[in-house]
Amino acid sequence: MEDYRVRSIVKTISWRVLATLATMFIVFAFTGKAKLSVGIGLVEAVSKMVLYYLHERTWGKISWGKLKHPLADLVLKKELTPEDKELIQQRLKELGYM
């Protein structure tokens, strides 16, 4: 089953917060420059958030590799088929209702 959009959006934000903090920490560790690490972090946060969301929604539409419930595609049919009618007649006869 595909996720709702809001779930994808919340996942995008939570991952981005985590990943951007990691990026800023790494840049700061290598350069010692706080301004640069925050700048890279902000640019990265916005651009990758958009990319992540699009990537997530695209994968959501691909059923390959997904665990699928055996009854996920079941359609509730209101109309009885000719075979159903035969079976019903048979049952009713066996119980003396016909």
């Binding site: 419930h69 055996p70 009854l71 079941l74 509730l76 079976l87 019903i88």
Partner: peptide, 16 residues
Amino acid sequence: VALDLARAVYPPVLAS
């Protein structure tokens, strides 16, 4: 006169 479980259960996921 329910004929098959798949169409006898709502929500359908409970049929399994």
